[in-house]
Amino acid sequence: MSDTAHETGGAGPSHRGVEAGVAVVVGAFGIITVLGSLKVGIGWADDGPMAGFFPFYIGLAIIIASVVNLYNVLAAPNDGSVFATWEQIYKVLTVVVPTAVYVTIIPFVGIYVASALLIGLFMLWLGKYKPQAAIPVAIGVPIFFFITFERWFLVPLPKGPLEQMLGLAVG
């Protein structure tokens, strides 16, 4: 994928820096695993290995692997390649940010209303669709899911004040 960044030739964070960052985050995850394992015991009890026995060594392996990875990144000469151009990162964020808002509001407004907002926003903002095209899709798709999940398959999904008001919510 980094080839694409090469070709477009735009500016952006260096591949080297991001890779080092990933290695550090992975290493931190390993440390958390080791700490969590120590809490529940990493030795042998009389009924076999304790709960933390395997996770402890798994955590150690993660730490060692990311130290090697970090060393490999830092030891290699900086080839100046970028991880992604700022423009590409902006594009990725245009998905990540709305989705983050989406998953945050699901517990409060329910999945159907949140989905309608997400689809509508996406089509209007990123797809540059006209409202008369975007709004029916944005409302129709959640209604379709509602009928499929709640009515046919009886799978309750999160619902909010709107469904309460309409008397459609389980709880």
């Binding site: 989705t99 997400l118 990123l126 540059k128 669709y129």
Partner: peptide
């Protein structure tokens, strides 16, 4: 088009993730 199908896939993913343990 991607800008139509992508949010629908995101919604499907969210539904799929929720129904595993019924947990937001």
């Amino acid at each position: 088009p991607f800008s139509v199908i992508a949010p629908i896939i995101l919604v499907l993913c969210a539904i799929g993730a929720y129904t595993v343990h019924n947990n937001t």
